[in-house]
Design a protein around this nucleic acid. Structure first.
Lengths: 336, 336
DNA sequence: TTGTACGCGTTATCAT
DNA sequence: ATGATAACGCGTACAA
């Protein structure tokens, strides 16, 4: 069974391929009469449009790529859903890749996208991404939106959250509750986002004339177990700590484990705040107070912006920073 | 800046386009001499391979589609990661779509894939999928692997878990602990998977001469809140129930809420088992005993099978059923 | 190794 | 006003 082509349809309808093409794309001037003939020919033959051929001719495609480092992280899964929704609205197909923080894999994916004439990208790049990577993107002039992880290069569009403000909110909340010995737990040392979150925390301390104790600031991997291990050490060495702000909810969940092990009642004799507001935050006992960053909305906004870029919007690079909010549950007690 | 084509490279290297093509794809016999010339020409010109053109010529592509109904469900996110890994191994690009149980959206996605000459599909179809959908896939002869949700049509490859065995394991566990009043909570009435899980449960009861009480079998939506609501009603009407097997972990989490509200100690005066082993199951307090189905592995196996089909494997349809296992945590107490 | 027809839709230009 | 003609996008594979 050989493929049915536009030419076959044209023959059947006694028109030229040009006419069929115009009917398919609603362009040019076609009489209702012939349009009907063409449409029924399409129907009778069971013609399937060949996007590949169109792409080749147009030197473009309806495909965009999404690069993440961990789709199993609920935060990114949620963001993906938002983006996917937006892509569908615009009839764009979404390629997905999971770099798992591997720079070569990330590079492979982007190379493939370029070879496929992808018309845009949404990227949450791996941590050690070399600047050459960004240079290549710029040189190829492919619309690229960076998300969540800030990139030094201001040339790119960015959609993310206000890390600084987020931890300011959280820190202020702890201060309002009377805490003065507040730890900051988690994040990897070379992360820009961490620097920003740390900044929100320290700035609030300073603003309230509370000394910043660097021994209470520790980093960890983005996992529950790592958070637990780090926290245990920290609390053993510094029993004076009464509250902690975590870089991520995942880490906070680990800290919870540590606190339980040390027999400290979360919400009573210890206050804990996370960041991200992943689903789990509302499921644990007690519910985790956390900074919510509207992950789904980040996906949507990124999609919106990408689409406008693909349409030719050439305004200077944008930075869309979605305001975070503090979701108060039970992990800091009930006093507001 | 006009695109650099294969022809440009050929001109620069003083060879034919055929030669360049062969060098790029390591085919035919090319002398080391010319190969070097071609490679350096590619390098100098910064040539980028045009996959689109190749796809058109080959009437194929290196693209496969993954259709899910909810990427934010951790179970599917995990599966996606497994599939993504496998696709990358074979240099296949993965299209992702989130149907959110919408049949038209699902259809759109598959239509787009067909128009893009996708070489294969992995599908977890929406619940109300009409049989016409499957007919189309068969007619187009595109390799398609169904996952997780069993499909009536035995014509398709399937990768999933043994629902029946899973609930048998769980039910036996509860029986061993002495429970005789065991409820089955969750799943939607028209789900095949639910029928299978229900079968495992009832078969074990019958095997142990325990009457099946249909009043203890209730269904619910796949959400925590729905699970909680349903469970509350059930336990109020039937206080004699001392244990429950849930269709999904998500539902089990809701049931936990209900139990707390009713002041019943999970793991002490009530035993609860879930299904899926999502990450949350190990995070809640007490940890949820559940049937683990190796979601990541389902993704990998599906990818492996799909790849072999794309390569031309035309053995009869396969059903790969991964054995589930019971992960014992604390929600049934500590007695084994 | 090379020449070249081919895969299939698009669009600018031309014809009626 | 409508529609046809034909060159074009770029890599592939077969005959020479």
């Amino acid at each position: 069974m050989s493929t049915i082509t536009l030419a076959d349809v044209a023959a059947r309808a006694n028109v030229s391929t040009a006419t069929v093409s115009m009917v398919l794309r609603n362009r040019g001037r076609i009489s209702d009469e012939t349009r009907k003939r063409v449409l029924s020919a399409i129907d009778e033959l069971g013609y399937v449009y060949n996007q590949t051929a169109a792409n080749l001719r147009n030197r473009s495609s309806n495909q965009v790529g999404l690069l993440l480092h961990d789709i199993t992280n609920p935060f990114y899964a949620e963001m993906t859903a938002g983006l996917s929704q937006e892509m569908e609205r615009h009839q764009l197909m979404l390629f997905l890749a999971n770099s798992e923080e591997s720079v070569p894999r990330q590079q492979n994916f982007v190379d493939s996208l370029l070879q496929n004439n992808a018309s845009g990208l949404v990227l949450c790049t791996a941590r050690q991404t070399p600047s050459l990577f960004f240079e290549t993107l710029k040189r190829r002039k492919i619309p690229s939106i960076m998300v969540v992880r800030p990139v030094a290069d201001a040339h790119f569009d960015f959609v993310g959250t206000d890390n600084f403000l987020g931890t300011q909110l959280a820190t202020q909340h702890l201060l309002n509750l009377g805490h003065r010995h507040i730890a900051f737990i988690g994040g990897s040392i070379d992360s820009t986002a961490r620097a920003q979150r740390l900044g929100g925390y320290t700035s609030k301390l300073v603003e309230n004339s509370i000394p910043v104790n660097s021994a209470w600031i520790v980093h960890s991997e983005a996992s529950q177990s790592s958070g637990a291990k780090i926290a245990e050490q920290l609390f053993a060495a510094h029993p004076e700590i009464t509250a902690a702000l975590c870089y991520q909810d995942i880490v906070a969940l680990g800290v919870m484990q540590a606190l339980r092990k040390l027999n400290r009642q979360i919400g009573r004799d210890f206050a804990l705040i996370g960041f991200d507001d992943i689903t789990e935050a509302s499921l644990v006992q007690p519910g985790l107070t956390t900074v919510s960053v509207a992950s789904r909305e980040i996906g949507r906004k990124a999609g919106e912006l990408l689409y406008s870029r693909i349409q030719g919007n050439d305004e200077p690079p944008k930075r869309i920073i979605l305001p975070p909010s503090l979701v108060i549950r039970e992990s800091c007690g009930y006093t507001a």
